[in-house]
Structure formats: C-alpha cells, structure tokens
Amino acid sequence: MKVSEIMTKDLTAVEKDIPVRELIFILNNAEMPNVPVVDEDGILTGFISEKDLIRAALPGYFEMLHSTSFIPDMNQLSRKLTQIADEPIERFIQTAVMSVSEDDDDLQAADLIIRKGVKNVPVVDADGRLVGRVRRIDLLRHFL
C-alpha cells in the first residue's frame, strides 16, 4: 500500500524564523512531539522536536550523563529556556531531515520509523512539499 493511503493528512508545520515560545505553544496545543519545518513554498527543509528544545536548554555535558540527578539545579533548564524563548528556532532545527514520498511503499515508512526510532516521519510530494506525516500509530492501525 502507498504511504498516501496510511498517512495522517495534516500540514501543521513551522517556518525557521518563529520564536521558541511559539513553537512550544504549537507543540503543546497540537499535541505533537515534533513538527516539520518548511519554507515559504511549503517545501520541507527541516524538523524540530521537544527533544531538540530540551537539548538546547540543558548544559552541554548533559549528553554524557546517565541521569538528570547529576544536574545540580533544574532551575538551569528554566533559566536557559527563558533566555532562548524569543530566539528564532533556526539554530535548533535538524536540517538532515528524513522523509518519505507519498508514492513510497508503506514498508519504507515503517522501516524508517522502526530503525531510526522516531515517532513519525514527514511525507512529501514530488516537488518536496509537505503533504502529511506517518505516525507510529498510523502504522500500528494499518498493519493490525
């Protein structure tokens, strides 16, 4: 079956110049863990997730720690988030973005999601424009 037949047909996306504060509002209200980044023509250019924001707001050595209990003060997270709240998200975007085409086979989307451990993958048309996303739950529902 084609990706276009199983995907969630939603175009929720952001542009790279929106502030971090607005991104958090969108992720919270749309109940999405991440959101595609597009240019003014709707062409997929990147991806940004809750995880990217947490990483941006934590100290650089965080990745080497096994537990958040090693962080002396969680207020650091709050302070850093407040500092970057009005910054454009551009600095925190993943530009090496994975995507599938709407004409791809469903197994290609499943392979990406399972192998890369991502929660969803953006779907683009032949011109690279965002047309939807395949979520883990779309796959589970589809293959049941």
Partner: peptide, 13 residues
Amino acid sequence: LRDEGVTTNFVWT
C-alpha cells in the same frame, strides 16, 4: 476532518 479524509492545516489558538 481527518477521519473524513480531509487534509487539515489549522492554526491553534
């Protein structure tokens, strides 16, 4: 709308 097969592109307020 999604259940009806419509593509959604709404701004959350």
